[in-house]
């Protein structure tokens, strides 16, 4: 499966991180308490940030930590606390729904894995040299964002504002007549 794998620091790091990520994902699925699930997603987000670093996306790794592991996880915790957070996940009853869910998910996963591994697609060979060698990641992103992608960037900022206002409006308690 991993024929021709050369053990280097990077590969070791990758496998450790991948293991951690999958472990956190499985925890997310298997935990009983909602609060533990939220914490395990925090682990997933941090692990993902590590993967980003391996992929030489430094800025995104920091952004991932800040936005996901920081803001979003905290927000989720607040949401959990505001609702019935002490309620346990009801014991799973084996009905058609979870069975079909397993089948569907596994089917999709198998298809994707087959495509990745066994379909004979010639994936681009990773080069030892990074294509971004010696370049400032943040500077590159900044230049691209404010030149080529300036309009989407502005639009996204509008979306964020709208989402912010919308979220406040929705969560705001309605005035009792």
């Amino acid at each position: 499966m991993f024929s021709g794998l050369v053990i280097t620091g990077q590969t070791v790091a990758f496998f450790l991180i991948a293991l951690f990520l999958i472990a956190c994902g499985v925890m997310l699925l298997s935990m009983k308490k909602v609060i533990y699930m939220a914490i395990s997603i925090g682990g997933v987000f941090i692990g993902a940030a590590a993967v980003y670093i391996l992929l030489e996306a430094d800025f995104l790794a920091f952004a991932q930590v800040l936005v996901y592991a920081g803001a979003i996880t905290i927000m989720l915790l607040f949401a959990i606390m505001l609702t019935k957070h002490d309620e346990l996940e009801r014991p799973a009853v084996i009905t058609a729904h979870p069975v079909w869910s397993v089948l569907g998910t596994a089917g999709l996963g198998l298809i994707v894995l087959w495509v990745v591994k066994f379909s004979g697609i010639k994936w681009p060979q990773a080069t030892a040299d990074s294509p971004f060698q010696g370049q400032d990641n943040v500077k590159m992103i900044g230049e691209s964002l404010f030149s080529q992608y300036v309009i989407p960037f502005e639009l996204v900022s509008v979306v964020l504002i709208v989402a912010l206002v919308g979220a406040i409006t929705l969560a705001n308690k309605e005035e009792k007549n």
Binding site: T11, T105, W123
Partner: peptide, 17 residues
């Protein structure tokens, strides 16, 4: 050496989870 397949596999697994 890292390869594309490893990352894609990791992505697929996470996606399915």
């Amino acid at each position: 050496m890292l390869s594309v397949e490893q990352f894609l596999t990791l992505g697929a697994i996470l996606f399915c989870i």
